[in-house]
Amino acid sequence: MKALFFLLVVPALWCQAQSTKATAEAADTSGFAARLEALRQHYQIPSLSIGIVQGKKLIWYRGLGYADIEQKIVPTEHTIYHLASVTKTFGSIILMQLVEAGKINLDDPVTKYGINLGARWGDDDRIKLKHLLTHTAQGNSFNGFKPGYSFGYNGDYYGRLIKPIEQEAGRSFGQLMVEQIIRPLGLTHTAPNPADMVNFSLTGYDRTAYDQLIAKPYDLVKGRVVPATYPSYFGPSAGLLSCVSDLAIYSIAIDEGRLLSAATWEQIFTSFRSPKGKPMPYGLGWFVQSYKGIKLLWHTGWWTGNSSLLIKIPEKDLTFIILANSQDLSRPFYAKYDIFRTNPRLQKDLRASAFARAFLDQFVFHSIPLSY
């Protein structure tokens, strides 16, 4: 593979994308790109790569701003970004593959795998793997902190799923990601965090060539855009890198029911319910929401120097992908804090994002057709 991968695959993808662009041009007649550009400038986001998938095709894409401000590099659908928590949707697939194989039971207590959540939770046998997967492990003061009764987004707890995954698979999470998702789907720009040299090397990609395709990270500090440093973590909760063209392939594979059985996909995209039957805003690795009678499946990502948003509307056969090289695409999801002003509380409504509202308003609820 190595550098040859970039010499052979990237030109072919570029040619395919040019054909797609020509047929999807009519989709922008209502100024969707202009609206997104206005939002990009409002939030002072250096770079956005955006795509819409329909009919098993990437039918529309745009690159806005600069992936590298200093070098004035305009992003494309192949520009690579950190996905942050959108990685959780991939982690869910790997976990559920082990569930289907009979190696993991979601009702197993976390203590079976030596997971200790600390604080008041410690090694509580009542906390099951399903509670980590659905962000329902913590409970709250109103229900005696019993797991399963309330939603509290916790990326650290989700990341603890690496223990049962690796123990029962007998392989590293990175190996599973490469062998069971990246290679089978042909995701040529998707990889574990390059800062994790062991897991990145599993792809066989040339590190120097890959780094050149990654958007530079930035942050907004006191109203000024400044360079930032990407996190080095890689695991079930974050740390995967990808691009619009690869996420389009990933989305199409989900629509085709690949990687998992139809029953498992249905379970993933169904709201987890409390012991009293209360639906939660999260399924198994995805937010699940209903708005105006339409089911919205989505996940956001937010970390230093990067943010992302992946939205699927099964009823409309639509997927919206938007990736950024600063936190500010997804910052509105984390605008509210707990009563001590210490921990951000993730918003459970997709429409907290102005970018999501732009997409939903134009293509989902106003039903402006996408021509292709």
Rank of each mutant, 00 (worst) to 15 (best):
M280T: 01
L213G: 02
S201N: 04
A34D: 12
G148L: 09
T79L: 01
L64A: 12
L247V: 06
C243P: 12
I313Y: 00
D196A: 07
D219I: 06
G301A: 09
L241S: 02
Y113I: 15
A253Y: 14
L310D: 01
S371C: 10
T264H: 06
P279W: 02
F173D: 15
R258A: 00
A195D: 01
S49T: 05
S271L: 08
P147M: 08
Q41R: 13
P192I: 01
M177Y: 00
V74E: 07
A38K: 02
T319E: 07
G239L: 10
Y149K: 05
G223K: 10
M197F: 03
I73S: 08
A262G: 07
F151I: 00
K316C: 14
G51P: 00
I50P: 03
Y230F: 10
L309E: 07
S47K: 00
N343D: 08
L241C: 04
A33C: 11
Y157E: 09
N154Y: 01
D125Q: 04
E315N: 12
A356I: 14
H135Q: 02
V10A: 09
N105W: 12
T76D: 03
R331Y: 13
P147F: 07
M280C: 06
P11M: 04
D255Q: 13
L95I: 15
T29H: 15
V53I: 08
L185N: 08
A238S: 14
L132A: 09
Q212W: 06
S307I: 00
L58S: 03
I268G: 13
N105Q: 14
R40N: 02
K163Y: 05
D255I: 07
S85M: 03
S19G: 09
D338I: 11
K112Q: 05
Q347H: 11
K222S: 11
G285N: 06
I268Q: 12
A191R: 11
P279G: 06
L129G: 12
D246P: 12
S232W: 03
K336R: 14
S245N: 15
L202I: 04
F32R: 15
T304H: 13
I73D: 04
W265P: 02
L64C: 08
A215G: 05
L58N: 04
R207H: 11
D317Q: 11
C243E: 14
A137F: 02
